[in-house]
Design a protein around this nucleic acid. Sequence first.
DNA 1: AATAACTTTCAGTAGTTTTTGAAAGTGAAG
DNA 2: CTTCACTTTCAAAAACTACTGAAAGTTATT
Lengths: 168, 168
Amino acid sequence: MELVQAKLKFIEAWGKLGSEWGINRTMAQVHALLLISPEALTTEDIMQELSISRGNANMTLRDLIGWGLIEKQHRPGERKEYFFADKDTWNIARQVAQERKKRELDPIIKLLNELSEVEGKESDPAYKTFKTSVTDINKLAKNVNKTLETMLKAEESWFWGAIVKVFK
Amino acid sequence: MELVQAKLKFIEAWGKLGSEWGINRTMAQVHALLLISPEALTTEDIMQELSISRGNANMTLRDLIGWGLIEKQHRPGERKEYFFADKDTWNIARQVAQERKKRELDPIIKLLNELSEVEGKESDPAYKTFKTSVTDINKLAKNVNKTLETMLKAEESWFWGAIVKVFK
DNA sequence: AATAACTTTCAGTAGTTTTTGAAAGTGAAG
DNA sequence: CTTCACTTTCAAAAACTACTGAAAGTTATT
């Protein structure tokens, strides 16, 4: 396969994957573009490569910075801003995991803890079923949380080494 | 907290979580409703509880069956169909993991393998950066894949036991 | 074979999210 | 203090996704 087509395929696939995970397609595509680009790019470059508007490019870049996935670069003597992506895949995975944990897992754990406190009679089937479901989901959520926390702190090689050791 | 409000909160939260993960909000809410319901429910019940249309309820229930999260139940002497959710949280997690793996991870691994084959000169920075990114993501994806496969086969207690043992 | 009890479909509508592009903002340099 | 080179904002439009409800379809019962 040619590099040019391969790049297009990669950008497209990354965009699709993003949108399946609740991440805006354009954001994922801009990220993909920067990931495979050896040089930092300007807003103009990105607009051209992906055929998107200035406004869209600007917002998307801001969001990516918010997720900790890309950074601004300034070059001496130039007023333009350049953007480049962290190329370390493990960092990317951690960044994304951290952001989603904060936005999604943490609030749901908080809620589940509250819902565990609901009051009712053991003899009421509606109560019993509710309580059991909530308690079980809570346990699962806490295990996921613990594992994520370990991952966030861990080095890649150690993490997968440990996992593989147990699961082989 | 009262059971009635707690149920509403749970359904709302589950719906929100679903939509953040690319799962239709209504589908997640119907699932939540069935999860905390001790009895199997009819389409009619679900329409009423969640104030949704017949068409929506029907499509959503079909999708949930497709995900392996709920089942139809027939009662002797009745023509109505009843629906109930698998209440085992670990099964739910596995079902969802399996479905998403099949739809998302498997295709991306296939593509990454293809993209690893791209040809070019080592001296071309565009080529080198592309290749490195793709190779790294590929490695990560394969590790995730392996872990998921283990999870899909595993018993809950064994799985978390193993994880906790390593990460404590 | 007619009715009744239900389920499924789908064209149109409503609601949500994303994108555009022009205008406003910013601040460095002359 | 004005211009210039850029960045940011945001209202309106477009694109996308989800939902409705009436009509068509299905199957059990009489």
